[in-house]
């Protein structure tokens, strides 16, 4: 892909990824075929900040986990009342990293 396109993508999407993953993503995109560009652009990423707010408000019901696609964990959280509240609180600290991990996984699945 052209460097210009890649840089544009990274500039508008960098909040969805861990900062230390950005160089790796850049390389991946540069190596990728031009035909993937349309696919990459249609990808829907989750905003870590939004998920964090959801986690703070409705983490006890597992809504945050449902939103990033961890349905199984979401059900577990919902039925155990946020894991007795402990899991819900620990997730406040984990969820942003988990969201970014999910985002990069999504991108990698399209590119490989």
């Amino acid at each position: 892909m052209e460097a210009q396109k890649v840089d544009m993508f990274i500039m508008s999407n960098n909040k969805f990824f861990e900062s230390h993953h950005i160089p790796q993503i850049r390389e991946l995109l540069l190596k990728a075929d031009d035909s993937k560009w349309a696919l990459v652009q249609t990808l829907q990423f989750q905003d870590p900040t939004t998920i964090l707010i959801v986690s703070l408000l409705a983490g006890g019901f597992g809504v945050d986990r449902f939103m990033i696609g961890d349905t199984g964990l979401g059900v577990g959280k919902l039925l155990t009342c946020g894991g007795f509240g402990v899991w819900a609180i620990v997730d406040w600290f984990i969820i942003m990293g988990a969201t970014k991990d999910k985002n990069i996984n999504k991108l990698q699945q399209v590119l490989y």
Partner: peptide, 10 residues
């Protein structure tokens, strides 16, 4: 005959 009462944070 003694619980610890409420545990649900919500």
């Amino acid at each position: 005959n003694s619980g610890i009462g409420q545990v649900c944070i919500f």
